[in-house]
Structure formats: C-alpha cells, structure tokens
C-alpha cells in the first residue's frame, strides 16, 4: 500500500510496474485505466466532463483531450498505442431530480464520450463498469493490469 499514487479530479498519473494508482469517489466522473504490459506502463485518468470547449484550461478535465494527452504522454515514456488497452469506471447519476434531464445525463454523456474517444484513438476497451446511482473508487494495479472497483454497500469488483 506504500506505493499508492493518488489521482485527483481532472488529473492523470502514469506509473511504471508495479505502481498502484487510485482515484476516489467517482460520481458522474470517469476513471480511465490505460495499460501497456510490454512497456510496464499504466495510467489512470480522472475526467469530469465529456468534451473540451475552445478555450481549454486543463486538458485532463475533458474526455476527448484527456484521453489524447494521456496516450501522448504514455508514448513519450515508451508506450505504444497498438498495445495500450483501457478499462473504464464511473459515469453514475448520484441524484435524480424528477423532471430534470440536464443534470442526470452528465454521467451518461461522460461514458459515451470516453467510449467514443477510445474508439477514435483505436484503443481496445477490455472492461467497463459505468452507470448506476453509486460512487466508485478505482484502484489500478500496474503489476497485474487489474482495476478494482470499490463501492459503498457492495462487494469489490475486479475489472
């Protein structure tokens, strides 16, 4: 547990094997775990919103720019996008306000955008745990490539 690397909101961290990356309490946000086993490289990206506006303050806040930039960084560290795979978790709807679509859809819009952008970048998605009405903490072990999803009141789940 000593080598737990914490990823904040709108943030990415890249680790060499056997680093363990963690991001806490994903609600409508999405955690994307990138893995290149041959290069012993793993990354965990925590995005908050689906698409970047014209004026970008922080590339890791948005699914499209966050995914592109994470791949670029991994490649600069010896990763190869033909080998890189991804697992995603989050995209929940924490509150349901009756008659209010705008708020509820953000989790869904995030997961749609993440999936679309992984596809555009030709990254294979090996697992996903998205949607629902509960928060998720994701712990990504770069030694095994396993992403463990922790939720409140349910058993842990491995992706």
């Amino acid at each position: 547990m000593s080598s737990l690397i914490v990823v904040g909101i709108s943030d990415v961290k890249i680790a060499r094997t056997p680093g363990v990356l963690i991001t806490y309490a994903l609600g409508s946000c999405i955690g994307v775990c990138f893995y290149d086993k041959a290069a012993s490289l793993g990354a965990l990206l925590h995005i908050m919103l689906p698409d970047a506006p014209e004026k970008i303050d922080n590339v890791f806040k948005y699914a499209d720019t966050g995914i592109a930039e994470t791949l670029r960084k991994m490649e600069s560290m010896g990763g190869n996008r033909n080998r890189i795979t991804a697992k995603i978790a989050g995209g929940a709807q924490m509150f349901h306000v009756p008659g209010d679509n705008h708020l509820g859809n953000i989790g869904r819009r995030n997961s749609d955008s993440v999936k679309l952008n992984l596809l555009k970048q030709r990254i294979r998605m090996l697992g996903s745990d998205v949607g629902g009405t509960f928060a998720r903490t994701v712990e990504f072990n770069t030694a095994t490539g396993i992403a463990t999803i922790r939720t409140y009141g349910q058993h842990d789940k491995d992706l």
Binding site: Y24, A25, G27, M48, M94, F95, L103, A135, R136
Partner: peptide
C-alpha cells in the same frame, strides 16, 4: 453514498 461523489455534482 460517498460524500466526495456528491460534491462533484
């Protein structure tokens, strides 16, 4: 649920 996720709303 986790307070951290509610605050991100």
């Amino acid at each position: 649920n986790m307070a951290g996720a509610m605050i991100t709303v």
